[in-house]
């Protein structure tokens, strides 16, 4: 077995130091060491997008990230999206309202990727939404409702 290492980064605004191994991916650290099971996994090979988290605001696949790559970074997971227990992020509200969630397994990855999109482009076209979310597979919804939700959230966030 390889030696253990300590990595430090911020998760959802909280500074964390984790004793881990160089070959444990961020996905494993989040889910298994930090108990943040909101981040999902569907392939562990970079092929489905379920494990997407934001690293310094940019969507990345936690199943591919090695601990050293996230040293000192700011990580946002789905647990960090809502302002408080009652106050959801506008994207979360929109996903709830338009029914963009069926089984919900792709949802954390979709939400975070959509957040990064709206942060950069507050009024994306349907095509831009599709492109931005094209690394996230959803088997339930056919994506239509997700597009509607992102559009709705974008409209609300603009005002």
């Amino acid at each position: 077995m390889s030696d253990s290492i300590v990595v430090g980064f911020t998760v959802n605004g909280r500074r964390r130091e984790v004793l881990t191994k160089p070959h444990h991916t961020l996905l494993e650290i989040l889910r298994e060491d930090l108990g943040l099971t909101g981040t999902k996994h569907g392939c562990e090979l970079g092929e489905c997008g379920a494990c997407t988290v934001l690293v310094d605001g940019i969507p990345q696949l936690s199943c591919l990230l090695l601990p050293h790559q996230v040293e000192g970074k700011e990580i946002t997971t789905v647990e960090g999206l809502a302002k408080s227990g009652d106050e959801l992020h506008p994207l979360q509200e929109a996903f709830v309202e338009v029914g963009a969630v069926q089984c919900g397994y792709c949802t954390p990855g979709m939400l975070l990727t959509a957040k990064a999109l709206l942060d950069e482009n507050p009024a994306p076209s349907r095509q831009e939404i599709a492109e931005a979310l094209s690394g996230n597979i959803c088997r339930c919804t056919g994506y239509e409702s997700i597009t509607r939700a992102v559009e709705l959230a974008a409209r609300r966030m603009e005002v």
Partner: peptide, 12 residues
């Protein structure tokens, strides 16, 4: 979950 086998990580 599919996992990595152990390795050392060097950071030049």
């Amino acid at each position: 979950m599919l996992r990595l086998k152990p390795f050392k990580y060097l950071r030049p």
